[in-house]
Structure formats: C-alpha cells, structure tokens
C-alpha cells in the first residue's frame, strides 16, 4: 500500500514541478503563436520568395532562382533615380514635418483663449484619409482649375498656369508638400505630450538663474524630451519611407518615374507584372536597409543615455 502510494506520489510531484517550470511558457504561448503566425511566417515567406522565380502568370514555372531577383533590381536602369527620390522624399518630408511639428507643439504648450478649439483644428489633417488628401492636393496643383495656380496668377508671380504635376524631376515636390501637411500633426501631438511632462520647476529655476528662452529650449526642453524626439523621428522615417499612397494618387510616379519612390515604383510594377519574387526581394532589401538605419540611428542619437539630465 505504502509502496504504491509513494510511487504514485513521486511522479505527481515531478509533474507538478514540470508544470510549474512550463507555466510561464504556456502563458506566453498565445502571444508567441500570434507573433509567429503574423510576423515571423510572413518575413520568412518573403525571404523565401525573394530567392524564387514566382510570377503569378506562370504557375508552371516556379523555381528557386538564386540571386536573380536581387540582380534584376540592381540592374534596373531606373533604380538610381528611384533611390535618389526615396532619399529626397524621406529627408525633405520628415525634416520639415519635424521642424513644423516642433514649432506647433511649442506654440500650443502655452495657455491662451480658444486653445482647445485650435488644437483640434491643427491636429485634423492626421485624421483625414491619405486618399482624400491626395485628391485634394491634386486638384489644388491642377494646371487649369487649381487653387495654387489661381493664387500665383493673382499675385502676379506667374503669367501662365504651370502644370506642377507634369514637370519631370520636380513633380515629386507637390507630393512632398501634401505629405508634410499630412504628417505635421503627428509630430505636434507627440512632442506636445512630451513637453507637458517637463516639470515647471526646472524652467522656474532656470529663469531665476538667468537663462534665456533659447538657452532653456536647447539645454532643458530638448534634452528632457529627447527620447520622444528620437523615437518619433525613427518611426516617421520608417513610415514615410514605406508610404506610396500619395504618390500613387497624385502623379502615379510620373512623368517617366521621376516622382516614384521605392515602394510606389515596385507597387506599380508588380501590379502589372505579378512578379512576387522581385517584390519580395525588394521587401527584404527594404527590411535590411531599415534595420541598419534603426541601429545606426539609435547609436548616433545615443538613445540609451537619452532623457537623463
């Protein structure tokens, strides 16, 4: 009796121990499954496809093709132009969004009458769909019926309407302007939230010590909110780099690809070629570029030491 008792008790103890050891993993499992299914699997699949000849129109002809997709990407004669456009697109858009957003946040970080109403209005663009913004700006820049041509003519700056969206090499500028307008509120919201967390006492102490406004901005405010600044710039660069919608709507990348960035070019191309292999190669390349960018950016900005003053 007693022998059987101890025999049955021993496994149950060890089983309980095992269960206890596994418990955290079991609790993590649902989250892990979601991450694996929706992040890891697509990434691995994209990597796999990038090494394959995979054209939907040729289902009989699907096979591994080594680095052919990557070679084709680099051999594309339009690629230098597209990469240059992507760089201009990201630097101009994020740079101006950041400066304007910062200014907006500083302006709104004061108490004045009607602040809430104004705040709601200036943050509105962020809530409008990109499609609508694209259509509105496209009409504003229209040669015949556009508001901007109308204003410029009225001011006497030009004597005949300009087809802004049809000028090679500069037709990306109206799109960048639309994109800046769209993204300023994002920086505004994020930076304003951070500004409101800066304790008043520090500014008061600085006032007493005789520090001027500019000095306070650069030596107190900016260092204090640096983590937010670094992170918002990091995220915006990634989003803007990946965004193609406004380009697609306003110029379709034209004329002759001079307003295409990397995603809009490949989106357009794959839509007609159904070459998923090449699209995946580009996706993998973008992932690598953005990962490198993230690492370098966080190093340079000393993100780990940020926020400690």
């Amino acid at each position: 009796m007693s022998a059987t008792n101890t025999r049955s008790a021993r496994p149950s103890v060890s089983r309980r121990r095992l269960l206890r050891r596994l418990e955290p993993y079991l609790l993590l499992l649902p989250a892990l499954v979601i991450v694996l299914a929706f992040f890891a699997y697509p990434v691995l699949k994209a990597v796999q496809l990038s090494f394959m000849h995979y054209v939907l129109f040729e289902p009989q002809n699907i096979a591994y093709s080594g680095f052919a997709n990557f070679k084709a990407l680099f051999a594309d004669p339009v690629m230098p132009r597209i990469l240059f456009n992507s760089l201009v697109w990201v630097v101009a858009t994020v740079g101006l969004q950041f400066v304007l957003g910062f200014a907006l946040a500083l302006a709104l970080n004061k108490k004045f009458r009607g602040k809430n109403g104004l705040q709601a209005v200036v943050f509105l663009p962020w809530a409008v769909s990109a499609f609508l913004i694209g259509m509105i700006f496209k009409w504003m820049f229209n040669q015949q019926n556009g508001l901007i041509n109308h204003l410029l003519m009225g001011l006497g700056l030009i004597d005949r309407p300009v087809a802004f969206l049809a000028i090679p090499h500069t037709s990306i500028i109206p799109v960048i302007i639309a994109m800046i307008w769209y993204g300023v509120p994002f920086f505004g919201i994020m930076i304003l939230a951070a500004l409101q967390s800066v304790p008043h006492e520090i500014h008061e102490a600085a006032d007493i010590d005789g520090a001027g406004r500019v000095r306070q901005l650069f030596q107190i405010t900016i260092p204090y909110i640096k983590p937010t600044l670094v992170l918002t710039v990091l995220l915006r660069v990634i989003w803007v780099f990946n965004s193609a919608d406004l380009i697609y709507i306003m110029t379709g990348g034209g004329p002759a690809n001079t307003s295409d960035n990397l995603p809009s070019y490949i989106f357009n191309k794959v839509g007609y070629t159904t070459d998923f292999g090449q699209a995946s190669a580009l996706g993998v390349l973008m992932l690598v570029v953005l990962t490198l960018y993230t690492i370098v950016f966080l190093r340079i900005t000393k993100y780990r030491e940020a926020g400690e003053i």
């Binding site: 992040f39 990091l234 990634i238 989003w239 990946n242 989106f267 953005l290 993230t294």
Partner: peptide, 18 residues
Amino acid sequence: IAAVSLLSAALTACGGNG
C-alpha cells in the same frame, strides 16, 4: 515598441498586395 513598429511597417509595405 520601436522594433515591433519597424517590423510591421516594413511588412505592410512589401507584403501588402500578396
């Protein structure tokens, strides 16, 4: 958060029409 956003942003761009 940054890592997750990076991943998802990159994924939506390249796998969107897949």
